[in-house]
Design a protein around this nucleic acid. Sequence first.
DNA 1: TTGAAAGCGTTACCAG
DNA 2: CTGGTAACGCTTTCAA
Lengths: 343, 343
Amino acid sequence: MKKNPTIADVARKARVSIATASRVVNNSDHPVSAATRRRVLKVVAEMGFAPSEVARALATRQTCMIGVIVGDTNDPYFSAIVRGIEDVARENGYIVIVCNSDRIPAVELTYVRTLLNYRVRGLIFAGGGLTDENYLREMRALVEQMERRNVGVVGLSEHLFPACEVTIDNRAAVRDGTSYLIQYGHRRIGMLSGPAGLNTTRLRTEGYRDALQAAGIAFDPALVIPGDFRFQGGIRAIERLLAIDRLPTAIMSSNDEMAIGAMVALKQRGLRIPTDISLVGLDDILSTQYVDPPLTTVQIPLYEMGATGMRQLVRLLNDEEIEPVLWLNHTLIERQSVSRIAG
Amino acid sequence: MKKNPTIADVARKARVSIATASRVVNNSDHPVSAATRRRVLKVVAEMGFAPSEVARALATRQTCMIGVIVGDTNDPYFSAIVRGIEDVARENGYIVIVCNSDRIPAVELTYVRTLLNYRVRGLIFAGGGLTDENYLREMRALVEQMERRNVGVVGLSEHLFPACEVTIDNRAAVRDGTSYLIQYGHRRIGMLSGPAGLNTTRLRTEGYRDALQAAGIAFDPALVIPGDFRFQGGIRAIERLLAIDRLPTAIMSSNDEMAIGAMVALKQRGLRIPTDISLVGLDDILSTQYVDPPLTTVQIPLYEMGATGMRQLVRLLNDEEIEPVLWLNHTLIERQSVSRIAG
DNA sequence: TTGAAAGCGTTACCAG
DNA sequence: CTGGTAACGCTTTCAA
């Protein structure tokens, strides 16, 4: 097992001091004669020297690593966001560590601590904020610590601890989706809600209630089915809805994956979409385009959210002024899963 | 901006030497009296001390970071693999750095170099091996270097440089998918192939030819449409196929995403699946289950590939004996996109 | 324009 | 059982 060449090796071979070698390697503005520079560069190339980021980090007390906490990389929602983050990170010389929390408070906390021990330069919380009290208490302490230690934090949803945010208005997004259904004459509208313990779930459910209220429709808690943001969850939700006396004429889902699960379950039972029941999703993941019928959905600019979040983080780390909260727009994408209610 | 507490701070406050503090923090087997240990632990808790992984890495010349090179995290193929890797990494105390190469040789090489500078402990190449000559030359040199520097390498496909591998038999997988179509009476079978410059593309195309040959069907190069593994690529492929005089009666796609693109394009043109044209995919991503009709496909155990790959890497790093190549099984999943040819 | 040397925060070896 | 201290590989300040 051979060792990596060090800057000392380079210096020795080039017959210069370590300081000088360091200067040319880092392209420092400290003056170095052309001849010396050339000599060092030649040796660097010969030996294939590249400075150890670990040693550099220790000396400068700074890494170029960014931690990203997601619920599950395998969920298209997160994978799109992560791609946006990673692209911008790369452009700016950062490297990204991805951590799957499965939205479990303890896992998330452990990851944050680990990332801090690795001295990441910044942290992006890609998922919706968790509402667990213990979690929040600990997380607030950690965030405060990060503040002091100068590690940047940005959240890509409305979090319950202080941090810069890049987010859409979750409440309004679901309100708009639901209102759209109401415009189409629906009054008995089901809601597929997200997992418990998530701020986003709360906000989206409120958006649903807002829309009903604005239209003077009574809120029926039996029509709100808790879910898990996953395909199977959508299927189960339909089973639960079927257990109540009468199906709603339309369903607002708090994400696409569940909406698609619902669509499949409904079709399996011989129900036609949108003739028998209308469906609106949220996110606009790719597969909304290839299900049958294509799903009408409220689009969230996922990739952009990731990219913008990372851009904000870069600014933060460069001590530039940034707005504490950046709102991104959602857009209703009309496809073919909604129709005017019969009769 | 406050500094992180160091082990020296702990030692001072606990009135012990740095060496002793380090011993208790690391749970070293070097003897430490119970009283001392208690005292140190108390201070550690009070100060919220956690050792800097950066300093630790410098001292031990070892990190617990694993680099993962993928084509695109946002592609369900890779996101499933990454999830498998990350789960096993976490169980074993490793952290994962994800890098999107978009299968561009230069990007991949740059990433590998960067990861090496960060002193990752191991590297997983999740995508199919690139065939670019320059790339291969450089990559072989890098792999050799990693060998010497003791950084583990595992590839999750058949790569063209020496490394441990965990892979399915790509050639056989496509052969089996194609043979399945042949069993259903198809003889004029199109092939949606992968991007150029990818070993996997080559192998899968060979599998297609193998199946034709075994059935005594002449190979028609016009029926092999190059693709990009993406939804849009599938759509474009159908446009190209339509440009030839007569559509094939069946299509073998070298991944699901393209198969689904093809399905959508075909349906848009009023063709029925599988009545008018049969379709077989490869991968078994989640959406194969919710397209209409559900897609018959050759399943690749993606999550398992990632998890197994990471497990092998862990063994490698523990100097355990491992098999150089681990073959995982593919399985044909019959759904509803294939029918016996009419007539 | 160059170099010496003091850190950075740990680990681990060697003495005691 | 405890402590002193030399690395680890680099950056950066201060002198020359």
